[in-house]
Design a protein around this nucleic acid. Structure first.
Lengths: 206, 206
DNA sequence: CAGTGTGAAAGTCTTCACAGCT
DNA sequence: AGCTGTGAAGACTTTCACACTG
């Protein structure tokens, strides 16, 4: 469906559009326009139209976009018509919080296991997940064909567990450790480090 | 110190440089080069030099940058020579996890209070923080002159607590709720939504 | 001679503005 | 009338490549 090669920055905005559409759907509306979405998201309407135009023509002139229709298209584009299993590596504060985060379920993801290397944590429960020994990770990942991992271990161990996960077949990593992972070209990594955001904002504070 | 107006995208990379420098410092080195940092971060050396050139000349030709010297400069630029107090709004999974996250302390921030509106949580303890009634937030923020807040409440309440916090004097918000906050122009907001990152990555997975 | 700082060139991304459809 | 989809223009960002310095 992508006509040519779509810029990564455009792909990054699609989930945002999807999120806005969900909120609009909740408010019971049936159609929306690039203008309305733009206002909602604080960006320009031209950008939204241009972004979507990379993938096809989803709107009706004079009317706008069907909210459910566009959601469906975006889910197709982002491969969200299936549910993706994810593993969490690290059963500390962050690992526990994301394991119990209810926000994944309705947006295409299902946490299916939590791993740690601390004998005191292995076998214990986090919400409804038993914590497994990280040594069982390779077998687990291979057996279930899992491609997504979230890393929530201390910075010192992050590269090590990333290597382990990649060797086992993981293709994309959401990394919560405050460190830059080095990975092969075909592996995707996205990072979440709240401190980076805070430090960015303090630049603008008196 | 900023010669002219520095692009926001440049400011956003400075914390990344700071993080890389900390890691290098730990490995005992004294000097680094734009090339070494670039390799570490997976970006180009020219970009690093250009970014830094917006703020002054920090390197020595032939030698590179003093690791501690550059760290100090970046801390100055980002206003990180003081320690910033932050409040957390929301004492659920995410709020608790970030309250206990040890990564803030050495990077310029100190969590100083946690608020919630749930009577069952108010008065209870999260790590070493007592959870306060959100109705005490305005007084607390004013009395201590707090400018930074992290919002970790459900999406439905996020706009409401953001409004409350802003009215009390909060100037910058790190928002964990999966929703776009609308705020006045002079307030800065950054968002963390792991699902957005995951959905971005599934685009590239088979 | 290794490595910075920087104009100029190349590349990328956003906005404009309007033809054309409903 | 209202709103999309889109070339072309404009703005912004990155990279190049080299004069210069310790």
């Amino acid at each position: 469906m992508p006509a040519k090669r779509v810029p990564d920055i455009v792909v990054a905005r699609l989930p945002l559009y999807l999120r806005a559409l969900s909120a609009m759907q909740h408010s019971g509306k049936e159609f929306t326009s690039s203008q309305e979405m733009a206002q909602w998201l604080g960006i320009s309407s031209a950008q939204i139209r241009k972004d979507l135009s990379h993938f096809g023509e989803f709107g009706k002139q004079g009317t706008g976009y069907s909210i459910t229709g566009l959601q469906q298209k975006l889910r197709q584009i982002l491969n969200l018509e299936r549910e993706w299993p994810i593993i969490i590596i690290g059963a500390g504060n962050i690992g526990s919080a994301i394991a119990n985060y209810p926000g994944f379920a309705h947006r295409g993801f299902r946490v299916c296991a939590v791993f740690d290397n601390d004998p005191r944590k292995i076998g214990s429960h986090i919400g409804r997940y038993e914590v497994y020994d990280v040594r069982e990770l390779p077998t687990f990942v291979r057996r279930h064909g899992i491609q997504l991992a979230m890393i929530a271990v201390p910075a010192e161990s992050a590269q090590e567990v990333a290597d382990l996960a990649i060797a086992a077949g993981i293709k994309a990593i959401l990394n919560y450790a405050p460190i830059n992972l080095s990975v092969p070209d075909h592996i995707r990594v996205e990072n979440i480090d709240p401190v980076l955001h805070l430090q960015h904002m303090t630049y603008y504070l008196a």
